[in-house]
Every structure is written in structure tokens, then in C-alpha cells.
């Protein structure tokens, strides 16, 4: 009883705290000074049409590097927690999983290539359209999820996943250092020519970095999905 009252009080208190926000208290009439500076400077400084991408990859690029590190740590944690040994399955024969339906198998064959292509499209155009490395990486991981569902016995090649992930992570830091040596600072996209705003090859190193993030996120999420299957050695 006491617990219920406390839970009710906590929820009611939080509702009271959120009420002004729900009534639009936080909504400004115009963006603040920082946001206005980003909106005017991003296209001029970096040639990036998508301001959100410019913030994520260059203005707050260090945060994104940390975010990718957090995702890596979580992937490693999930992989370490969900091994066959730790789940108590030991050397027991893996139980036969029910085969996938023909519809799923056929659709997987048709869709896998399209999904990977779509994911690559999303992260290559991150500086021009809504999208980017994280979104594209998730789409690529769905292609691998379809594959895992259609062939439950199949195993992802951990060597390839680890190679893609570590190479793209190292190249991400390498692009950042390139910015430090050739331009004004770590992760500065002006290390590469800016090009004409709105074209595919523009915004300096932003599309390169976001593509690397896309590959890394795709490999990491595929690793998580594979680990969640629960039959890792």
C-alpha cells in the first residue's frame, strides 16, 4: 500500500513538473543565438545543406565520437553477457530451430540487397537530406536481421564484423586527426575541399565521416542482433 502511494506521488509530481512543457512553455518564438549561428554558419563554413548533420558531425563531433564509443561498449557488453557458456547452455547440442516460412525466405532474398543499398544511400546523403550514419546503419542491420530470421542456423562471420567495425572506427579518428593537421581542429570537415553546397561531393569530410559511422553502426547493431540470438560460443 505504502509503495503504491509513493509511486502515485512520484508520477503525480513528475506530471506537475511536465505540465508547463506540455502547455508549450519551452517553445521559443525564434531560435536562440546559438541555433541561429549554426543555421547561418553551417552552410557557409562547411557547405553542409543539412544543419543537423553539420552539428552532429562537426560542431559537436566530439560528442558523436563518444556516442559511437558508448555504442561499442554496449555491443561488447551484450556480446560478453550472452554467450552459450554464460547462459548455462555449455556444450549441449543446440536445439533445432523451426525453419523459416517460404514467404520469409523468398522476401529475404529479394530485399537484402535493396535494404543494404538503401542504407548506403541514406548515409551517403546524410549532409543533403534527413538521414545519416546512424539511420543508414540501422537499415543495414535490418537486412542482416532478415537474414538471421530466414536462416536461423546461419552464423554471422565475427571476423568480418570486427574488421568493418574497427577499421571504420580507426578511420573516423583518422579523419578527425586529418582535420587537426590540415584545418583548424580535431574533426574539422574543412580538411577536404568543400565543393558546391547541395551536391553529393560537398561539405568536406562530413559525408566521409558519416559513411564511416554508418558502417560502424551497421556492424555493431548486427553484432547485437547476433548476440541476442543466444548461440554465440
Amino acid at each position: 500500500m505504502m509503495r503504491r502511494v509513493l509511486v502515485f506521488l512520484a508520477v503525480a509530481g513528475l506530471a506537475w513538473a511536465l505540465l508547463p512543457l506540455a502547455l508549450g512553455a519551452g517553445v521559443p518564438e525564434a531560435p536562440g543565438a546559438l541555433a541561429t549561428a549554426y543555421l547561418t554558419d553551417a552552410p557557409e563554413d562547411f557547405g553542409a545543406a543539412n544543419v543537423v548533420t553539420a552539428i552532429v558531425v562537426s560542431y559537436r563531433g566530439f560528442d558523436t565520437l563518444g556516442e559511437v564509443a558508448v555504442l561499442f561498449a554496449a555491443t561488447a557488453g551484450v556480446g560478453a553477457l550472452l554467450t552459450r557458456k554464460r547462459l548455462g547452455l555449455g556444450d549441449a547440442e543446440p536445439e533445432a530451430k523451426p525453419a523459416a516460412t517460404e514467404i520469409l525466405v523468398t522476401a529475404t532474398g529479394l530485399l537484402t540487397g535493396l535494404l543494404v543499398m538503401f542504407g548506403v544511400y541514406i548515409f551517403l546523403h546524410g549532409h543533403l537530406t534527413p538521414g545519416g550514419g546512424f539511420q543508414g546503419g540501422v537499415v543495414i542491420a535490418t537486412a542482416l536481421l532478415l537474414g538471421l530470421l530466414a536462416r536461423p542456423e546461419s552464423k554471422l562471420s565475427h571476423g568480418i564484423l570486427a574488421a568493418v567495425e574497427s577499421l571504420s572506427g580507426a578511420a573516423y579518428v583518422g579523419m578527425g586527426l586529418l582535420g587537426a593537421f590540415l584545418a583548424w581542429g580535431f574533426l574539422d570537415p574543412r580538411a577536404l575541399p568543400l565543393g558546391r553546397i547541395g551536391s553529393l561531393v560537398s561539405a568536406g569530410s562530413i559525408p566521409v565521416i558519416y559513411s564511416l559511422i554508418g558502417l560502424k553502426v551497421g556492424a555493431e547493431l548486427s553484432g547485437i542482433l547476433d548476440a541476442l540470438k543466444g548461440d554465440r560460443e
Binding site: P31, Y38, V56, A74
Partner: peptide, 25 residues
């Protein structure tokens, strides 16, 4: 519109996914 909250939420979504996966594991 203001791009800063959108960039923050993009980060938050990814971290949230990592946290959920770890919790479930």
C-alpha cells in the same frame, strides 16, 4: 526550425538503444 534539439535527440536515440539492449541482456 531550431536544429540543436534535433541533434541532441539523434544522440539520445542511439544511446537509448544501447542501454535497452544491455538491460535486456
Amino acid at each position: 526550425t531550431d536544429p540543436v534539439p534535433q541533434a541532441l535527440v539523434l544522440t539520445a536515440i542511439v544511446i537509448g538503444l544501447a542501454v535497452t539492449a544491455l538491460q535486456l541482456s
